[in-house]
Amino acid sequence: MSQYRLRMAVTLKPEVLDPAGQATQKVVAERGYPGVVSLRIGKLVDLWVDASSAEAAMALAQTLGQDFLANPVLERFEVWVINDED
């Protein structure tokens, strides 16, 4: 068993309205930061997982994402392994 560190980005599905991102983008534009045409806000989840392999840790994280951490009605997620050097 070793410990793996994984990071999951939970984001709203692209077709779902993001009121917070929309309002933030508008203020960003008003305050004179040019070129930001869209801004969407999600969540970042860090996981420390004891598992037999990186693949097993990933598989667990995938299940966790589907069942628990992301809301399948509104969100989707990506997960990746983070190396200690990062």
């Binding site: 009121p19 933030t24 203020v27 305050r31």
Partner: peptide, 15 residues
Amino acid sequence: SYGDYLRAGALAAHA
């Protein structure tokens, strides 16, 4: 203010 989106008060702080 601003729906308290991003963080409560964060967007108004930049008005």
